[in-house]
Design a protein around this nucleic acid. Structure first.
Lengths: 215, 215
DNA sequence: CGAATCATGTAAGAGGCACTCACATGAGCT
DNA sequence: AGCTCATGTGAGTGCCTCTTACATGATTCG
């Protein structure tokens, strides 16, 4: 039992029972995904890092998808927090705050690749973890509420449905993150940073609605 | 040797040698990915469908990534063809032709989910198949050239870099395809079709450049 | 305080897959 | 006909997922 004595990996082990195996497995999953991509993660390896036998994780997660789903869920919570922070309730002004949210989205994809991968690349079924779907909804809601606020200050005759604005911006941000922030066979070199690309795109879009600069 | 007699699957088998195993494996991979997602594809299962032993595929592909990479390569070729057809060299007019390209992109994601998944979701390394990177480049080039043509008819003072336009539109189309055309934990119901969403987004964007309707 | 209970961990194992290597087959060339 | 080489087979290694029966010890309750 090489795994039962000293606990090797991240979290300490105090006896036959681990003490906090569930959390330790989630941490291990995050670090494995960060290191080797979502496909490089295995239950067996996570168990090894946590210092338990390969069967132990099944006491806490039905299967690999459930563990990955838990990582994705926490990712959505973190993204929601990051977007909320960036939006800062629309301060100092709605348009720059909106731009800040875009940067926050790309920053999240860049800085938390493991969470991002679990959320968008691992293709975890929505029902893999309870609350996963709603965590995703809450993250989107931040963007949507910001869009409502923005739409409210647009000239009436150009005012678009806020939900549509939110979907457009989310799509562009997500597309840029997927194509240019993360490695991909279709990836190409950009003549600018991903953040600049998104900012320019959003500005052009908002101009059309009478919300930014040269509208 | 259940596999050596009649060849069961798609392609006929005439003896000890298959005759066209390489193609048969690619077809099998496409149908498997379509049926069970990119993770549901295995070399062993593809071999089974082709009616050969599990070791045979390795005579034609270094590993699973190489086979998946070949599928992705062909996907980029098909996408390039679809985009070229939709753009129709800018006829009848650049803006509607551009919109048609957007619809073609989403149509591709919807109608060829196996190819789309191999291209964008399987995370095949760019070097997995020779020519994969350049096939991706060629597909993007169609969009880029269309953007050049569009930019050329924009009012000079608003004319954006064509490459940037192409990147913006590609990103939005790809984001919409990823988030709303294909299943995903973050997927949500749309108040409109994906095609309508993209068309509206592109129109708003182009308006800002003096290229569409109410600019 | 001591015993029953139950959550949590282990051992063992069935079944599957990726990939390798030595060997078999037969297609195409001379 | 005989050679040669691409292509396919069989067998095997090592790793993975997930299951089942059993072990351990924290907790609860008489």
């Amino acid at each position: 039992m090489s795994w039962s004595r000293h606990g090797g990996g991240g979290t300490e082990r105090r006896g036959y029972h681990h003490g906090n195996l569930r959390e330790a497995l989630i941490e291990a999953a995050v670090s494995l995904i960060a290191a080797k991509g979502p496909a490089g993660f295995t239950i067996a390896e996570a168990a090894r890092q946590a210092g338990v036998s390969p069967a132990a994780p099944y006491r806490h997660f039905r299967d690999a998808d459930a563990l990955l789903g838990e990582v994705a869920l926490r990712g959505f919570e973190r993204l929601e927090a990051a977007l909320t922070r960036a939006w800062a309730n629309g301060t100092p002004a709605p348009v720059p705050a909106f731009e800040a949210m875009g940067r926050a989205y790309l920053g999240f994809a860049r800085d938390e690749p493991a969470y991002y991968a679990a959320m968008f690349e691992a293709h975890v079924p929505r029902e893999a973890a309870p609350g996963l779907q709603s965590a995703g909804d809450r993250a989107f809601a931040v963007l949507r509420e910001a869009a409502e606020r923005l739409a409210a200050v647009a000239p009436k005759e150009r005012r678009p449905p806020a939900l549509m604005m939110a979907l457009h911006v989310w799509s562009m941000a997500h597309g840029i993150a997927s194509l240019f922030v993360r490695p991909d066979p279709s990836r190409r070199k950009l003549p600018m940073t991903a953040e600049e690309l998104l900012e320019a795109g959003v500005l052009i879009y908002l101009q059309s609605l009478g919300l930014a600069g040269g509208g």
